[in-house]
Every structure is written in C-alpha cells, then in structure tokens.
Design a protein around this nucleic acid. Structure first.
Lengths: 353, 353
DNA sequence: ATGAAAGCGCTAACAG
DNA sequence: CTGTTAGCGCTTTCAT
C-alpha cells in the first residue's frame, strides 16, 4: 500500500537512487528530473520510511523528552518550547512521563536509547551515577540537575528563594517552614540550601518539613505538617505544593496571608490567577526547554556554535498576595485579584553562563 | 560502540538469530541458551535498534499525538493518560504541537506518517476531507471531532452547556453572550449549538461573539467584545478564555459575578483555584486520552475487544462562584475560595456509547 | 532448538 | 548527473 522509493522510481522511469537524491539532496539531480520525480512522489503520496532511513543513516531524527509529571504545569510550557525548537531542526520529540519514579526514569531511558538520537531529562529523579551511565551511551542533556560531565540547563531559583526569605523577614516573620519537594530533586536541594543559609543569617527559626510530592495533594499534607510548628510562613518547594497548602489551610480555617504566609516557586500559569495570587520565583521553563534542545543539537554535532555546557536561567521574584505581615491582627487585606500578570518584582534577570 | 545482535551472538558463541529469538521470543530457545544470551546481552548493554526492528517488522511501536497547544491545561492530563496507556502496550508517543494551525497540523501529520503506527489527533483544526485522507494512509483516532469513517472519542459538553444556560436563566439573566473558540473546532460548534437552542427556548437574547483563541489573551479580547453588548452573562468556549475574560473585566472595573457572570468549559486544573472559582463543564480529559489510545490499538488489531468506533464522555456541570444573580445591587458576595474541588453539581455522568 | 540466508526501504560510496 | 551495488541491524522463513 505505502509507496516506496522503488514505486516512485518505476513510475518516473529513473533509478531508485535518483529518487532518493531528489528527495534528500535535491541539489544533486538535474532540475528537470527533480521536478518530475517530486511531482510523481507527491501524486503517489510517497512518505519516507524513517525506520529505513534511520537504519541507513544512523540518525533517527528524534529526541526523547522525559519529565516527572506532564500534568505539572511547570512542564507543558517547557515541552512546547522544546518541541518547537526540535521541529525547527527537523527532529521529533518522544515524550515520556516518569511518574516521579527514579526507577521508571531509568527504565524509560534505556528503553528509548535505541530509538532516539538524544534525550532531555527534566528534573531527574535517578542517581548521578545512573544518569552518567546513560549519558555515555546516549547524548543527554539534563534540566534542573547539575552533573559534571553532562550538559545541562537549570532554572536557578536559589537567589530568588533567598530574596523570598528576606521578604518574609521584612514582613516580620521569624519562624518559617520550608516544605521539601522530592529528595531526589536537585532543585529541592538548592532551594533548601538557599533558604537555610538566609534563615541562619537572619536568625530565623527554620522548620524543614517533608518531603512532599509536588502536587496539590502533597501540599495538603504539607499544610497539616505546618500546623504543629508554629511557623507564621511557609516556603513551598513549588507553586503546586503552595497551592495545595493554601487550599488545605483554608479548609482548616487558617487564612493566607492573614494567619500564615505562603510562597511558591516556578510561577506556573496558575500562580497569578489563583486565590490569593502566589508570591513566587519565576522559572522561565520555555527558555530552559529551548536551550536544552539546543544543547542536544550541539552535542550531536549539528553544527551549532559551541557554548558552555552548563546553562543557568535565573528567575526573578514576584511578590503577590500570598505573603503578608506576620500574624498581625490587622492582616493585610489582600485584593481579590492581582491585575493580570501583575506583582512587584525583586531582583532576577536572565543570565546564561 | 553500540552493541548489536552480532556482537552478542559472537560473545555468546551462538548465531545471530538465536540471540534475536532469545530477546524477542524467549519461548523459542532452550532455557540454558536463553539465560546465557540474556546475561551477556545485559553485560554488553545491548539495546535493540528500533529502526532496524521497525524495518524488519513493519511496526514502529510508536504513535503520534497531535494537540493544538500543549500549554493549554486541557491537554497535559490527556497527554499523560494517553502516554500511560501507550506505554502499557509498549508504544511510545511522539508529541506534536500544531500551534492551533490547520496547516501545520496537516504538515505534521504527513511528516510523522512514515514514523509511527498511528496517530491521535486532538481537537483537529483541519478540514474533514484532509483528515479523512490522512486516515486512509495512517490509522487515526480523533479526539473532539466527529467524522464518519474515523474512530473518535469526544468530550461531550453540549448537555452541560445547556444546563449552564438554564442555570443563568434561573439567576435572572436574559441577555447573554457566547464567546466562540476557533471556528474549526468541533467542540466550539457543538457548544454554540447547545447554547443557541437553550437560549431560544428560554427566550433569552444571545450575542455570538468571536472567534477568539482559547488563551488568556483571547479572553482579554473577548471581555472587550462583551462590553458593547449589554449582556449580563457570558459563556466562554473554554476555561482559559473564561479566565482571560474575568481578568480583563476586573481591569475594566467590571466585577464577576457581581456585574457579569462568566462560565467556562473543561474544568481545567486551575478552574477551581482561580478567582473567582469558575462555573464550568467538566471534560474528563484523561478518560479521553486513554480511550483514544485504546481505539488506536484496536484499530491496528492489537487484539483488544472491538467496541463502538465513536465514544463520548459526557461531562457534568460544576457550579462555582463565577456565576451569580443578574446585575443586582446586592450581588452575591462570592466566597474568596471554594473549598478544594468543591462546587455544586448538575446533571452529568460518564457515558460511553 | 539452532543456523543460514533473504530481505525490510533507504542511503552512500563507487562507477560511469 | 545518474545507475549499480553494498550494506545498516533486525526478523523470519526455511533447513537442519
């Protein structure tokens, strides 16, 4: 049923390789032949068989993109940007959801290894050694994870977290909690480190809670954990967790930010629209997605200029209404909505190094 | 570098075909040989080359999944479910973002046709004839689009839209607007039809506005369009549009639902959390994703029981706080947050036919 | 139960 | 510029 090179060649009265050339390297055949072949190929609805081509060339023109959870709003924008960049260079994207499981991540990675020309692994949950091993058999780029020999692009949120702690300090908070994300998450470790240092420097009491899954439900659990600590503010690992916290606190009759201030991280789509709008650190997922694919293209020698192997995208802080003065009677009455995309901004700028 | 069947065969002192069998059809080789071969393959880090396998078998073990916009929160959950189901049957998913462009959709479709065993096209924007043509050369399943010969699964929101109009009527609204999504969208046509019929039946004045892109920005435009009409309520094509509308109206000093009621559709993740929480119709994207892949598996004869070729998933209505009494001075003071996942529910139930 | 051999559809030298 | 010829790595008869 499917037309092959041979079919077209016969129909055009030329050899199979001429057709191949007309299709893959038009400049190698005479204008007349080329057009005739192309026309016939069109009529016959010829579609190159990528398996055959891949086998012959050794290039599959596809990358794998692994994410812990497609439905976590942090990823779709990254995915879209990555796919867009990949398309631009003729590559397709194989999407894999690892379900936040290190094991599944490794399994998928080895499963797709024979199927793609490279992989972008986002927020990896598996061990450095495991990833390093993969990187030896398959061109790999990491997102949000720093490992020596593997190119990476990271959303740098530590500076933002520091500013967030200072912001809370200024609002009078002296006892705060950090709500951990997955322990295997590099971002979590970075954020924790930044929060810890800032809290110590400012002589604030810090409760490190968790780990919690970066989901609404994880946030629900986290909210309950906060209750015992007496903290007047909580820095969540990410926005999803923060939103879960806010929701559960509300159910428990605790008002945000009146009673407890809450911050997120990433500035996902919903962060500006939810109630109250979230104070958070921007993460610029699309930039990360684009850069990651470019790093991969570079790595497989697609002729792009060589750049540093580790990129960082520093996100700015966005102050919205989920943070307020520490447990004061006249709690700031936060506006019901921030105007679209609004919020005050602290520090932050895009930097790649 | 990469170990091939031949490498393993040599190392194991058996023929290449024995290795192949040990790997693909373990039952065809003796237990002893099998284990030895498997062990050696493991040590050598052998990964089957899917291009070669695909060429030989004609099966690529991959599906394409096309969506108009990965970052539209309606899709990630569908994608996750689809990917999950695909993995279960050993298939990978090639994700393609069509950017809401019919042309790009067709282009991508023909591009991946030689690369996958089938395609799930979500909320197609191209013509029925174009899709029908694709479906002849590639097993295809449509999501949210009804075309005779092509299997499909649709989120049926029309009944919900009808209930929404009735809900608005009960709240005293007599002049309402429907904010159209893409004209090429089947869902848009269905929703419009339902709204039109209900409005006529109830003798309400209906303004049909748009089309608008199903994005926040599209919603901003829509909000402005509403202003001229004197409508006291607007039914948006989807939640994203509705959220954009609410935001822009707020900027214009128009209060929702105090001045204008707004409804969405899909019940995306954010709908329950945004401010005010959105009255909407649930769409059950994950069910659609799973079913779509199953329809595809069925179509390529993967041995699943045969079922109806057109599935429908009927979503229930969720009444939250973006709808209220028509322009009354003592507008309902909506709660700042609905408790998690809350809301009153009208009609609706899962049904497949 | 295992081996030998013939392709799958395409690309890439190599000749002409 | 075009045709001929070898594989790419795997599956799969067909023998043994």
């Amino acid at each position: 049923l499917a037309a092959s090179l041979d079919t077209v060649a016969r129909a055009a009265g030329v050899s199979i390789s001429t057709v191949s050339r007309a299709l893959s390297r038009p400049d190698l055949v005479s204008a007349g032949t080329r057009e005739r072949v192309l026309a016939i190929a069109g009529e016959l609805g010829y579609r190159a068989n990528t398996s055959a081509r891949g086998l012959a060339t050794g290039r599959r023109m596809a990358f794998a993109l692994l994410v812990p959870d497609v439905a976590n709003p942090f990823f779709p924008e990254l995915i879209r940007a990555a796919e867009d960049r990949a398309q631009q260079s003729g590559y397709s994207l194989l999407l894999c959801d690892t379900g936040e499981h290190a094991e599944r991540e490794r399994h998928l990675l080895s499963r797709v290894a024979g199927q793609v020309d490279g992989a972008v692994v986002c927020s990896p949950r598996s061990s450095a050694s495991g990833l390093a091993e993969v990187a030896t058999e398959l061109p790999t780029v990491l997102v949000n994870r720093l490992i020596k020999r593997i190119p990476s692009v990271s959303c740098v949120s530590a500076p933002g977290m520091t500013l967030l702690v200072e912001h809370l300090y200024e609002l009078g908070h002296r006892r705060v909690a950090y709500l951990q994300g997955p322990l295997a998450s590099w971002s979590n470790r970075e954020r924790l480190r930044a929060v810890r240092e800032a809290a110590r420097r400012l002589h604030m009491v810090l409760h490190v809670l968790g780990p919690f899954l970066p989901t609404l439900h994880g946030g629900h659990k986290a909210a309950e954990a906060i209750m015992g600590t007496g903290a007047t503010a909580a820095l969540a690992f990410d926005d999803l967790t923060a939103m879960g916290v806010v929701g559960r606190l509300w159910d428990l009759g605790v008002h945000v930010p009146g009673d407890v201030s809450v911050t997120g991280c990433d500035d996902i789509f919903c962060a500006a629209l939810c109630s109250p709008p979230l104070t958070t650190v921007r993460s610029l997922a699309p930039v990360a997605g684009t850069r990651a694919v470019e790093l991969l293209l570079e790595q497989i020698g697609n002729g792009l200029a060589t750049r540093a192997r580790h990129l960082g995208v520093i996100g700015e802080v966005v102050i919205r209404s989920s943070t307020g003065a520490a447990r004061s009677a006249d709690a700031v009455k936060h506006p019901r909505r921030a105007s679209s995309g609004g919020g005050r901004r602290l520090g932050g700028h895009d930097v790649t190094a």
